[in-house]
Design a binder for these strands. Structure first.
Lengths: 112, 112
DNA sequence: CAAACACTTGAACAACCGTGCAAGTATTGT
DNA sequence: ACAATACTTGCACGGTTGTTCAAGTGTTTG
């Protein structure tokens, strides 16, 4: 086993055990990555207030339909939002309240 | 003012008000971006268990000193960690318990 | 002082990301 | 059926990101 500078074997084992499994870690990184973009963050914040169709989101953000649609796809693949058709329009909403919570947690940190 | 499809003026105003200010939003995105990388996430997880020098972190992660050092710099600029010299070695630690909390929140979401 | 060790830094590179554009699909209204 | 509207998709482009490598700084030890 490798040698450590400030750690004995027991501490090293404890540290290694603290790391989540590879797949969990990768999933966690992917989750945070979704929140790590201004446009996606804006979309999620709006959706935490209610449901919106693509073009209303785009107008509220001053972005193109295309840009918004691209990001909605990413967010949906990440299971952070869901969508349903309503006539001509497609309505997006947060997938669950957990997402709202994560958003709040981050905001609290920023306004420490 | 722009027209909306599913929103009246009142709803649109309420939605717009839900968006944090530009600088807050950008800071929030930057914060999440820091958590959105496997290596940084591993480092933060380890640091949530105690203090580590660069080379012990590198050994625990199976990464090069350089790669770890680069990421430590990013994390430090983001005020998520702090460091102090201790002889030949530089010891890193979480900046505050808030960081630990954010990490836990994310993990809870992944293990819904 | 010189060698060894711990760490940092800058440049270079490939990989990834967000957006705009143009063309596509789906639904509604005439 | 046709036009209009709402949205999606693939591609191309510029910009960012994470890593490696090599050279650097700072500290301790012989």
């Amino acid at each position: 086993m490798a040698e450590f500078l400030r750690l004995d074997g027991v501490q090293a084992d404890a540290a290694a055990r603290a790391l989540p499994s590879e797949p969990v870690l990768e999933e966690l990184a992917s989750l945070y990555k979704l929140f790590g973009d201004g446009t996606r963050l804006r979309i999620l914040t709006l959706l935490s207030e209610g449901e919106f169709c693509v073009c209303d989101l785009a107008r509220l953000l001053g972005a193109t339909d295309s840009a918004v649609s691209h990001q909605l796809r990413v967010l949906k693949q990440g299971k952070l939002i869901r969508s349903r058709r309503e006539g001509k329009v497609i309505v997006y909403a947060l997938a669950d309240d957990h997402v709202r919570l994560l958003l709040q947690n981050g905001l609290e940190h920023v306004n420490e």
